[in-house]
Structure formats: structure tokens, C-alpha cells
């Protein structure tokens, strides 16, 4: 019982922290992208525009909530609620700090939910998160842009879900556990897994950008083909909910990449563990913005070719090679 209460308290903390994170992620992104394009970015509200995200949040609560007459009403309400729910549920398994040992010998984990199958749970929740977008497309009542956007998003998320799962299999083969803490322990004893599995890391980065549907793989909301994609008909807070979900997805995949491939809270002892961990997570979050400022958008057939024709066979071969090399004690690369 006490565990459940602690879990609920942690969950409320998680929602608060991630909400503030999402607000400031939008500010940070606008600022960085502004400087990359030789603009200044937000600067009017507060010093350096620091109060801009607060103003945006309040504004989105007071915007008129237009539900088109032809829309499917129950689904139109359900879609923006589901869109952030599943990414947040995935974030519940992400540790925020290294676990500490309590005086009575048990470990205290800084994640809402800890089990020995963390990775499977996160993958499952990320797979479910495409439901919000699919419902948004269906609920929009025959708006063709919403429909195209939703179709594309589902096909893309579903294709890259496989790549994500297979790219994670290579580290799992080496660590032989699905527990995120075990990954860090392994990397504290050996090198970081990126040095053993560089190809899996590259595949994972491609898949994580695609599954968060960000530039260069932001086809579901390609403004110049599809107006705004699946959220064309949504206004005010309902639209903000989809971005909420997207930014939390970015956080989840960044933290996952930092733990699985870059060693989580392991690092030289100059800095404490959690500083290393957060530096790595922020590096990946910066990477998303950097990609946005750098790459043009891919074409849809190219996007699907990368997943199905290139990454899928190569990753499967990589998995078989890793398994074989580990059994006969050969070096992996």
C-alpha cells in the first residue's frame, strides 16, 4: 500500500516536472532555431523571453475551443487526451536520477515505475502513442489533410517501432537484461555500448527521430503539403496537447538513448553521476533541434525505404552476428 502511495506522489511530481520541461523545451527550441537562422527568437515576454512559454500556456487555456459541426464528437475529445497519456506513461519508467541504496538495504528508484522489463514497457507505451494521432485523423470528419497526416503518422511510427525494437536488441544481447539499471552497471564495468554497437546506435538515432516524427522525418505534419497534418482542426489547448505528447516522446527516447548507448550515469569521476546523465539527455534533446535547423524533409517513399529495405535486413544481420560472436567469444567489431 505504501508503495502505491509513493508511486502516486512520484507520478504527480513527474507530471509537474515534465510539464515545466515541455514549456521550456518550446522556448529553448525557438531560441536555438532562431539563432541558427540568424534571428533572435522570443524576447518580448520577460528577460530573454523566459516568460514566453508561460504566456503561451495561459493563452492556450483561454482560446476558443472550436469543434467542427461535422466532427465525430466523442473521438474529437478522446484524441487530445490520449495523445499525451501514453508518452507520459512511457516516461514513468525513465529514471531521473541514479538509484540510491536506503539504510534498510532496499534500492530507491527515481522513476514512478520500476520492473525488470523496463525496455519492453517503454516500447509498448510508445507503440500505443500513435492511437491519439489516429483518432485525431478519424475524428476530424473528413478533412483530407487530417486523414493523410494520420495515415502517414501511423505507418511511420509502426515501421520505426520495429527498427527501435531491433536496434535495442543488440545492446540487450550484450547486457542480457531488460532492466535499465543493469545497462548502466554493465557500462560501468565495460566500455559504453556505443563503442561495441555503433551501427545499432545509428539505427536507433534514425528510428528515434522518426518515431517522434520530427525533422527530417516530420511528414505527418509537413506544412507545405498538408497544412498542419492531423491537428488541422484542433484549436487551443486541444492542439497544445498533441505537442505536449510529442515533446515528452522526445524526452523519453533521448533518455533511453543516453542510458542504453551512452552509459547513463557512468562517466569520469570529475562530475557526479546524475550530472553526466542529464548532460547526455540534454545532448540528445539538442540534437533534435540541431536536426531541425540542418536537414530538409525526406520524401515519403524514401522514409519507408530506409526502414523496410535498408535498416531492417541490416539490423537482423547485426543481431545474428552479435549473438554468434558473443557465443564463440570473438570481438564484435
Amino acid at each position: 500500500m505504501i508503495e502505491v502511495i509513493i508511486g502516486i506522489v512520484k507520478l504527480i511530481l513527474l507530471v509537474t516536472v515534465l510539464s515545466v520541461y515541455v514549456m521550456y523545451a518550446t522556448w529553448y527550441e525557438r531560441k536555438v532555431i532562431g539563432h541558427m537562422q540568424q534571428r533572435i527568437g522570443p524576447k518580448r515576454v520577460g528577460p530573454y523571453g523566459l516568460l514566453q512559454p508561460l504566456a503561451d500556456t495561459i493563452k492556450s487555456f483561454f482560446k476558443e475551443d472550436v469543434i467542427p459541426a461535422r466532427a465525430d464528437k466523442p473521438l474529437f475529445w478522446l484524441a487530445p487526451i490520449l495523445a499525451p497519456t501514453f508518452p507520459f506513461a512511457a516516461a514513468a519508467a525513465i529514471p531521473f536520477f541514479p538509484p540510491i541504496e536506503l539504510s534498510n538495504g532496499t534500492m530507491f528508484y527515481f522513476s514512478v515505475f520500476h520492473s525488470n522489463v523496463d525496455l519492453l514497457y517503454i516500447l509498448a507505451m510508445m507503440g500505443l502513442s500513435s492511437f491519439g494521432v489516429m483518432l485525431a485523423g478519424i475524428a476530424s470528419g473528413g478533412n483530407k489533410y487530417s486523414y493523410f497526416g494520420a495515415q502517414r503518422e501511423i505507418a511511420q511510427v509502426v515501421s520505426y517501432e520495429i527498427i527501435l525494437a531491433l536496434a535495442l536488441l543488440n545492446p540487450i544481447l550484450m547486457v542480457q537484461s531488460l532492466n535499465l539499471t543493469d545497462f548502466v552497471t554493465f557500462q560501468q564495468q565495460h566500455l559504453w555500448l556505443i563503442f561495441y554497437q555503433p551501427f545499432a546506435f545509428v539505427a536507433f538515432v534514425i528510428a528515434m527521430v522518426a518515431s517522434a516524427s520530427r525533422v527530417p522525418f516530420d511528414l505527418p505534419e509537413a506544412e507545405n503539403e498538408l497544412v498542419a497534418g492531423f491537428n488541422t482542426e484542433f484549436t487551443g489547448l486541444k492542439m497544445a496537447m498533441f505537442f505536449f505528447g510529442q515533446y515528452v516522446t522526445i524526452f523519453v527516447v533521448s533518455a533511453l538513448a543516453a542510458i542504453v548507448f551512452l552509459g547513463g550515469w557512468s562517466g569520469p569521476a570529475i562530475l557526479p553521476g546524475f550530472v553526466w546523465y542529464w548532460l547526455k539527455v540534454l545532448l540528445f534533446i539538442f540534437m533534435f533541434t540541431w536536426f531541425w535547423g540542418t536537414f530538409p524533409r525526406y520524401r515519403y517513399d524514401q522514409l519507408m525505404d530506409i526502414a523496410w529495405k535498408k535498416l531492417l535486413p541490416l539490423l537482423v544481420l547485426n543481431i545474428l552476428w552479435t549473438g554468434f560472436a558473443l557465443i564463440v567469444h570473438m570481438p564484435i567489431i
Binding site: 502516486i8 515505475f113 520500476h114
Partner: peptide, 8 residues
């Protein structure tokens, strides 16, 4: 654990 996940 799984009860917490459901509640969450």
C-alpha cells in the same frame, strides 16, 4: 509494480 503502472 504493475498495479502502480495501471494506476499511473
Amino acid at each position: 509494480n504493475w498495479f502502480i503502472a495501471f494506476i499511473a
